[in-house]
Design a protein around this nucleic acid. Sequence first.
DNA 1: TATTGTTATACTCTATAACTATA
DNA 2: TATAGTTATAGAGTATAACAATA
Lengths: 172, 172
Amino acid sequence: MMNRSEPKGTFSRPERTETDASVAAGLNNEALDSILLFTLRRTQAVIMQDFVSRFDALDLRPIQLGALLLIRSNPGSRQSDIAAALGIQRPNFVTMMDELDRRGLTQRTTSNNDRRSYSLGLTPQGEALVNKALQLLAEHEAFVSSGLDPNERRQLFDNLNRIESGLASGGR
Amino acid sequence: MMNRSEPKGTFSRPERTETDASVAAGLNNEALDSILLFTLRRTQAVIMQDFVSRFDALDLRPIQLGALLLIRSNPGSRQSDIAAALGIQRPNFVTMMDELDRRGLTQRTTSNNDRRSYSLGLTPQGEALVNKALQLLAEHEAFVSSGLDPNERRQLFDNLNRIESGLASGGR
DNA sequence: TATTGTTATACTCTATAACTATA
DNA sequence: TATAGTTATAGAGTATAACAATA
């Protein structure tokens, strides 16, 4: 173990928290635990698991709920805009919209100003589904944050957002 | 906007930090910004970008570096153990080991005790590559954490680990 | 010329079933 | 019988090129 007193050029280690898998096999994974990317990945994995199991009842994957929420908050948006906000490619969003349309949750209205693009919107069924989803979402967020007090949760979002805005699009 | 005074049953919102994409299109993505899974995903994406661009010179993807680091810290481990610690399926780890072997970075020695399994280890070239990688890794971690002071970075790891250990394997 | 939606396609990641050799 | 490594395979997710319609 390292010195407690912050040696220069060294990063503070996270608290010792072994991965399940490594604990099971008795592996030393200290090296991985101190890498932010890997810690984020593990945390995301367990959160994803809870999300997927909760939203299985509504047959909604995270990205689909993201699309519905964005369309609801930004009615009239174009596919390109929603895809960009979701961080996915336009071609891949087409397939997603095809399915949401097929399920009667969304509608593509041909725009008057620009006949190349669609105006996206939720159908009444889409609105109804999102309302159910918001309830599940609140329970999901409460569950995954149950180990954090409100201030710690705020700190977490703040730290994540600071990292993102510090690195975003600028490159290095 | 909501009241500042923590209304009951409501979660503290993260600080207002718009996604690049949504800013570009002028979209309101408040709903997504308050979902931990989505915020984690965005943060992970920008960190991944930096990681990949830095390690391109060594031709190492994150999961490959993870494998090398685990093997280094746990010489003699079996493939199943390393795969589990990495959180990937055993069949998929086989392909990875095939490539690391082909590149002369790792070696599979048939175990004496149990001739079904291999004892994994790094070759001298593997050791050398990991040493170079550790330098890059330190620079990567410094860069992605440059917006956080040591205490904030510690908090971030701690909060992520608390979420993970709170949800891990127990289900809900 | 440039952009929106689209099609086709390919590459990575991930997950499962089934085989073999050992135990 | 159970387990380690393996093979084959299938499904997501993601990325790019190129086309038709429209600007």
